[in-house]
Simulated assay, not measured.
Amino acid sequence: MTGRRPGLGIALVLAMAACFGTMDNSVRWLGAALPVLVLLTVRYAFQALAMTVWLALDPKHGFRSAHPRFQALRGALLLATSGFSFFGVQAMPVPEFTAINMLTPVLVTLLAGWFLGERVSRLRWLLVIGAFVGALIVIRPGSGVFGWAVLFPLGGAFTYASFQVLTSRMAALENPYTTHFWTGFTGTAILLPLLFAGPVDALGALAAATPAQWGWMMLIGLLGTGGHLMLILAMGMAPTSTLMPFVYAQIGAAALVGWIVFRHLPDGWAWVGMAVIAACGAASAWLNLKGAAPKPASAVGADTIAD
């Protein structure tokens, strides 16, 4: 029941943040040796297989979706977000990428106003503007710090915000565990033809991969799949408004793992921008939840992280 174990729910969200921060840095590191498209395919295939086993062992959750078109579109949007992430972290440091990608809650506010006709208050507009100012502080246009690479986290934030708006309208109609399976299945079904029809020698890359690299690929799949499952479990233990501020711990996790692996730390201005984005995003998410009609928590609809 929601709210019965908030401490454990917060712990799961923090573990989720650690999973995604570690996964993104692992993708950046392993992407120097293996094609990124291969890593992306393995990540989604792992989720599809893991959730197949999960649902097969738990008969109360089924494979059948009542809205297959919704699942296909949702899965494609999340795959696009993951694609921006996996390729983006090859071109810019993970902490800065993560912070810019956290524009998602404020973009959800904009999209809900434009496409769903929801009223956007003056305070919400100020938070939207503030978050984009934070992104500009991180990016510093004209400084040459990141260049065109900033299109990756910006694109990922937009596709994930679109995913959120779609999911918010449909989440109550689907079982979150079934949806988690279809997310992995849809991503795998799209990626496999692209992988083998494209210029990447996928079989050659996989055959040449060392046992250690195979282990890292499995770890990436485990971190991505496990991180989302942790959020599903957390949402059953505490209200979303309680958990939401802790989602932004992913920025700190990405920075810590990035320092351990690459000895990279954001500079002072980047930290300022990250703090502004996190504050505005968390406030925007809190306002969205506060203004929503009371209803059972949905881990699918409340997910604010995509990898």
Rank of each mutant, 00 (worst) to 15 (best):
L107H: 08
L103W: 07
V89G: 00
V108R: 13
S85Q: 14
L107C: 10
I100L: 10
V106G: 10
V94W: 04
F87Y: 11
N101L: 14
A99K: 08
P93R: 06
V89E: 00
P105L: 06
G83Q: 04
T81M: 13
G88C: 00
A99S: 12
V89Y: 01
L107P: 14
T98L: 10
P105Y: 07
I100E: 09
F86E: 02
F86I: 00
F86D: 01
F84V: 13
N101K: 12
G83N: 05
A91L: 08
M102D: 09
I100N: 11
P95F: 06
G88E: 01
T109M: 10
S85K: 11
V94R: 04
T81Y: 05
N101A: 15
T81S: 13
T109N: 11
P105N: 02
I100T: 03
Q90G: 07
E96H: 03
V106S: 12
A91V: 08
P105R: 08
T98S: 08
V89R: 01
L103I: 00
A99Q: 09
M102G: 08
A99Y: 02
N101I: 03
Q90W: 02
G83D: 02
T109D: 12
T109P: 13
G83V: 08
F87M: 04
P95I: 08
M102F: 14
F86Q: 01
I100V: 14
T104K: 12
V108W: 15
P93C: 10
P105E: 02
F87L: 09
E96S: 14
P105F: 04
F84T: 15
V108M: 14
S85H: 15
T81F: 09
V94D: 01
A91K: 03
A91Q: 08
V106A: 11
T98F: 03
V94M: 02
A91N: 05
G83E: 02
E96C: 09
F97S: 10
E96V: 14
T104C: 13
Q90K: 02
V108S: 14
L103E: 03
L103F: 05
S82E: 03
F86A: 07
T98G: 09
V108P: 15
F97C: 06
L103K: 06
T98V: 08
A99M: 10
L103T: 00
G83S: 07
M102R: 15
A91H: 11
F97D: 10
E96L: 12
P93V: 10
P95T: 04
A99D: 07
P93Y: 05
I100W: 10
T81K: 05
S85G: 14
L103Q: 07
F84G: 14
T98R: 09
F97R: 12
M92S: 08
F86S: 04
F84W: 15
P95G: 08
I100G: 11
F84D: 14
T98I: 09
V108I: 15
T109I: 13
G88M: 01
F97V: 03
T81L: 10
F84L: 15
L103Y: 07
G88A: 00
